[in-house]
Design a protein around this nucleic acid. Structure first.
Length: 410
DNA sequence: TCTGGGGTCCTAGGACCC
DNA sequence: TCTGGGGTCCTAGGACCC
């Protein structure tokens, strides 16, 4: 997390650029390109998950839907109750990635100092290029308009002396707006906001804070450290700094490799037998290992994640002596982990996370295995990967999984 | 008809070693 | 027979973000 006070300084100028209703805007543009007559941004519309797979939640909403009180993350069922005429469209992640890339490409004309924060958000260290482009507000306005003109969607841009303030600023009033939250504006513009608006303060923490009669960001900014410390331990100082708009974390433009990758799926019905769960684990293990092999990376930790019908989640993990990206190995470990952890309660979600990723393995054979076997399975994976590259990801799968209805949903 | 999927970071407790 | 800390590594779970 980036509330790091060291390095915070007045003379930095940071932009936070945030696409307005990203998924919905991007889907709207894509639909228009494909001959759709209406712009779904002008309806009461949402991008939503697949209800038949029990993934029916709101991922993004139009301004109209927002006005009806629909919030991101709520069930489509509940959203429809608020807005009976609601239109629901499925997400298209391929389109989103393309639009996202087009935004970052446009921005990189101006500066290499861009930190990609998520698919629809980034930070720019404007201080470093100010002498090239001049006044930050004038530039921000031009940039905002250029994005709308060339890419067809709107953004909010927040300006501050650090990333935290820039991010808070871009969130003020939407859409298509520019806001500043410089150090001398923190009291006036941020302290009156309710505590849950502060970045990093979620539901659990805000409930606890309100219980301590801390209701606004200003209350937290001026809170007594010793009073809060027993409740929030090491987080206390970070929270108080954040409420004071202090953050020294740098804009990091190099793409850092992820520390782990995961894949999980909510099933369309609860699974009740190991055999059913194994099949899902196998597909997931293959997805993840294929991705790792593409990146030439290896996992040293395998985690199996389950959610039961009450939405309670469980995990079980194993650290490996040797990193692996071999599907059959990860699948084998996952099965073992499942067998150890599963209490036979019906399962709603199955996932695997591969962690502690490394670039190379110095493979050390255990006493009883032969390196030949390992080379063989590795080669098999490679052959499958090559076929996938040549003919597409769906042409080949494990025969074990063929014609299985779990896979169709996947 | 409650509640996606992919991440990061933190905490607490246990094992183990010195 | 009972009793120490300190440090590190590992695991499970939680909180938060988009």
């Amino acid at each position: 997390m980036w509330y790091n006070v060291d390095g915070d300084s007045m003379d930095r100028i940071i932009f936070h650029i945030d696409v307005n209703n990203a998924f919905l805007s991007w889907s709207a543009i894509d639909l228009l390109i494909n001959g759709f007559k209406e712009d779904i941004r002008n309806y009461d519309a949402v991008i939503g998950g697949d209800e038949s797979r029990r993934a029916g939640i709101v991922l993004a909403k139009s301004m109209g839907a927002k006005k009806k009180g629909i919030i991101t993350g709520e069930t489509l069922y509940s959203a429809r109750k608020k807005c009976p005429g609601l239109k629901v469209y499925p997400p298209n992640y391929y389109v989103y990635q393309t639009k996202s890339n087009s935004l970052f490409t446009l921005l990189s004309k101006y500066t290499p100092d861009i930190e990609i924060f998520s698919i629809d958000e980034c930070f720019i260290d404007y201080g470093k290029v100010k002498k090239l482009y001049g006044d930050e507000l004038i530039f921000a306005n031009k940039l905002k308009d250029e994005i709308q003109e060339k890419l067809g969607f709107t953004v909010n841009i927040g300006l501050g002396n650090n990333k935290l303030c820039a991010k808070m600023a871009s969130d003020f009033l939407k859409p298509n707006m520019i806001h500043t939250l410089f150090n001398d504006e923190i009291k006036d513009k941020m302290w009156s906001l309710p505590i849950e608006e502060l970045f990093g303060i979620g539901k659990k923490t805000s409930t606890k804070l309100r219980g301590l009669n801390i209701n606004t960001i200003g209350d937290l900014a001026n809170a007594d450290f010793d009073k809060l410390a027993p409740y929030f331990k090491n987080q206390t100082i970070k929270m108080i700094n954040a409420a004071n708009g202090k953050d020294g974390s740098p804009v990091i433009s190099e793409q850092v490799e992820s520390k782990g990758i995961s894949n999980s799926t909510t099933l369309d019905h609860d699974l009740k037998t190991s055999e059913e769960i194994y099949k899902v684990l196998h597909v997931i293990a293959d997805n993840l290992c294929t991705a790792l092999r593409e990146q030439h990376r290896y996992a040293c930790v395998v985690v199996v994640i389950l959610k039961d019908r009450y939405f309670k989640s469980y995990s079980h993990q194993m650290k490996l002596n040797n990193g692996t990206n071999i599907t059959s190995e990860v699948f084998g470990i996952s099965k073992k982990l499942l067998d150890e952890m599963w209490n036979l309660e019906p399962i709603r979600l199955v996932g695997i996370r591969l962690d502690n990723l490394v670039k190379e393995v110095n493979y050390q054979m255990s006493l009883f295995e032969s390196n030949e076997d390992r080379t063989k399975v590795s080669k098999l994976d490679k052959t499958v990967d090559d076929l996938k590259i040549k003919y597409g990801h769906n042409v080949i799968g494990n025969a074990y999984l063929k014609d299985d209805n779990i896979i169709k949903k996947y």
